[in-house]
C-alpha cells in the first residue's frame, strides 16, 4: 500500500497571551491509500488541528508532512482533497445543485461537466432529485449529505471530514455512517475522519488514532480487525466491543489525572 499522507514528528505551537499552546507534539503517522482513519480524543487533543494541517489551513511549526507526495499547500492547490466541515455551510442563496457546483465553477469545469457531476454525486449521497431544492427545505442530515456531495464533486482522492455528523441526532447519525461506508466502498477514497464518538470511530474505521491533549499527541493507533463489509449490527459483536474497549482505555490513559 502506498502512503497518501505521511507525518513525521509534526509539531504545532500556537502563541497566545497565556503563553505557547502545544496543539500538536511529535505526531508521526502514515495514512495509506484507501484507508478509513478516525481521529478520536477529547477537545483540545489536536485532532481537528491535525486535519487542518493536512488541508494546509494551519502551518505546522516543526516536523514534515506530505500529502500525495507534495507539501500540504501544493496538495491544496492541486485540489487533492475534499474537506467536510462540522456545519454543512451551504449557501442559502444557492440551490443544492448550485451549492455542489460551487467548487466546480471555481475550478473551471464546463457547464455540461458540472451538471453531469452534480447528478452523479447527488446519487452517491442518495439525494437524487433534490438538486432544485434550497438548503432550508432539507433536514440537517440531508444538508450534511449535500455538503459531502459538494466535497466529492471534484473527484479528490482524499476526503477530510471534521466531525461532520457531530450536530446530528443518533438515529440520523447511524444512517449516515452506514451510507458513508457504502460510499467509501464504491469510491475507494482515502478518508480521514475526526469524531468524538467511540462507536462511530470503531464502526467506520480501518485504523483508529487515539489522541490526548496538553500537548496534543497520539497515544494509540489501533488497526481494526473488523471486515470491510459492516452491517450496523456488527456493533453487537465481541470483536467490536473489544476494539471499543481498547479505544476507551487509550482515551483514559491519555487523560492522566485530569478527570
Amino acid at each position: 500500500m502506498n502512503r497518501v499522507i505521511s507525518a513525521q514528528s509534526l509539531d504545532l505551537t500556537f502563541k497566545t497571551n497565556d503563553g505557547p499552546v502545544h496543539a500538536l507534539k511529535d505526531v508521526t503517522l502514515d495514512i495509506h491509500k484507501g484507508e478509513f482513519v478516525s481521529f478520536i480524543g477529547p477537545s483540545g487533543c489536536g485532532k481537528t488541528t491535525f486535519l487542518r494541517c493536512i488541508a494546509a489551513l494551519e502551518d505546522p511549526t516543526g516536523g514534515t508532512l506530505s500529502v500525495n507526495g507534495m507539501t500540504p499547500d501544493e496538495a491544496r492547490r492541486a485540489r487533492a482533497y475534499g474537506y467536510v466541515f462540522q456545519a454543512a455551510g451551504l449557501y442559502p442563496w444557492r440551490t443544492i445543485a448550485g451549492n455542489i457546483k460551487l467548487p466546480l465553477e471555481i475550478m473551471g469545469f464546463s457547464k455540461s461537466e458540472q451538471a453531469e457531476r452534480v447528478e452523479r454525486v447527488l446519487d452517491l449521497v442518495e439525494l437524487t432529485g433534490f438538486g432544485k431544492k434550497f438548503p432550508w427545505q432539507l433536514s440537517g442530515g440531508m444538508q450534511q449529505r449535500a455538503s459531502i456531495a459538494r466535497a466529492l464533486a471534484f473527484d479528490a482522492d482524499i476526503l477530510l471530514m471534521d466531525e461532520p455528523f457531530g450536530a446530528l441526532d443518533e438515529i440520523v447519525r447511524d444512517h449516515l455512517n452506514e451510507q458513508l461506508l457504502s460510499l467509501w466502498a464504491r469510491t475507494e477514497k482515502t478518508i480521514a475522519f475526526v469524531t468524538h464518538s467511540i462507536p462511530e470511530a470503531v464502526y467506520l474505521s480501518t485504523k483508529i488514532v487515539v489522541m490526548s491533549p496538553r500537548p496534543g499527541r497520539i497515544t494509540d493507533v489501533i488497526e481494526s480487525s473488523l471486515p470491510r463489509d459492516r452491517p450496523l449490527d456488527i456493533r453487537d459483536s465481541t470483536e467490536f466491543i473489544d476494539i471499543a474497549h481498547r479505544v476507551r482505555e487509550g482515551l483514559r490513559a491519555g487523560h492522566g489525572d485530569d478527570v
Binding site: L57, R76, R77, R79, Y83, P103
Partner: peptide, 21 residues
C-alpha cells in the same frame, strides 16, 4: 471563518471569493 476556509480548500482566488461568497 469556516466559509472562508472552505473556499481556501477549493484554492479559490480573491475574485472568486468576492463574487461567489
Amino acid at each position: 471563518a469556516m466559509q472562508l476556509d472552505q473556499l481556501r480548500t477549493y484554492n479559490a482566488s480573491r475574485t472568486a471569493t468576492f463574487f461567489k461568497l
